[in-house]
Design a binder for these strands. Sequence first.
DNA 1: CGGTATCCCCCGCGATACTG
DNA 2: CAGTATCGCGGGGGATACCG
Lengths: 235, 235
Amino acid sequence: MFKYNQYCPVAKAAEILGDRWTILIIREAIFGCCHFNEFHRNLPGISRSVLSDRLQRLESVDVLERQAIDSRRSEYTLTPVGHELKAVVFAMGGWGARWIVTDPTPKEADPDTIMLFIARHLRESELPEKRVVVEFNLRANRRRRTYWLVLMKGASSLCRQYPGYETNVSIASKVTDLQKVYLGRSTWADAVRNGSITIDGPKALVRRFPKWMLWSRFAPVVAERAGESKRNVSG
Amino acid sequence: MFKYNQYCPVAKAAEILGDRWTILIIREAIFGCCHFNEFHRNLPGISRSVLSDRLQRLESVDVLERQAIDSRRSEYTLTPVGHELKAVVFAMGGWGARWIVTDPTPKEADPDTIMLFIARHLRESELPEKRVVVEFNLRANRRRRTYWLVLMKGASSLCRQYPGYETNVSIASKVTDLQKVYLGRSTWADAVRNGSITIDGPKALVRRFPKWMLWSRFAPVVAERAGESKRNVSG
DNA sequence: CGGTATCCCCCGCGATACTG
DNA sequence: CAGTATCGCGGGGGATACCG
């Protein structure tokens, strides 16, 4: 394990957090990810050996706790030490949102990831009491994927196979256009108005849909910047 | 350059900040470091090629700005984008101070670094109008180094060679004991009382000396934890 | 599903030498 | 002083196979 050999809290933190993938593993843990294959699914590109190494390392420095559920599965959960890394992760995210994020590139256009992000940022208090099934038809790099987001207060879920329930609302979009709305580079209203995203279904549900979406916590920061550059361009 | 290929502000920030040494280079820039060899001196262990690479990379993402002073030297300064990384650096430092820092190891006992840290955390408003020269005699790993800290409002400096001015106060300590005071693992008063640090000179100056020292901004966090563990031990 | 062990490759990095 | 260029190596990490 690499050491800076400096008696400095920043250096000490950097020794732990600086390994590739580590901060994203912590981000996943913050959002409730807790199984090995769940981390592996949510972090496209990480190898199993690196994931294994990082989880062990984070356990060894008391950021994650590993608990055996049964002989087959374990659970990784944040310790109090790990929970306080929220401040670091959100500081990094805030900075990235404010200064770095631009439009998504084709390589970033991963439908699984954006649906995961959307599904775990729901406005729980606004969700319907009665189940609403929203079908997402996403296109990226000439491929198509369909997801079903089952929305119900306290019992929402994301499905990659048809869940059997009747679909109430259908959304169609390029992955990148949905990503831009999610991160605040454009608004839902604008995207629907200009046709980059289409939404079909009973009018009442279509109107309520955006109220169910929380989108990214960084969206306001990204949106604010979009406002700035528009002002810069126009005046 | 490595990419996570995730459309996520945390991942974007991690791509830029995650390289080894980068966050410490930014820490140095925050504290006013601006020349190549100054970075190199302040970051023992970094190679010139890595430093060169990181400075270029940080310039390319608009975190640092490089300006040629003359044909021989350049200056690296933080851009507004880079300045906002203070939040990230201090979040990491706060977490490290709260949860990670323990006592300094022998490898961390570097006299240059602790004197650098001390010299750039002075309580400017409290400094004397008339020059006071404080000599530090530091011991680590059976080696000795002497430094002279020249204290004067608006004109303090750290010297590795005898500056010529008369020494007013003499301090002697192991590097690690001074580091512990600096980071809040012990207090100046305790260290002097138990003899791990000695200070000699006119009583008035000896009494005023600790008021001139700001110590680390993370010292309160570290000290708070020391209090917790004492309470845990005692009851 | 939930990982670990092994192999092997590549590139990140240190060392050194060089230039303005 | 303030870097850049080149080279060679070691280990980080990807791929794969394997275990429980």
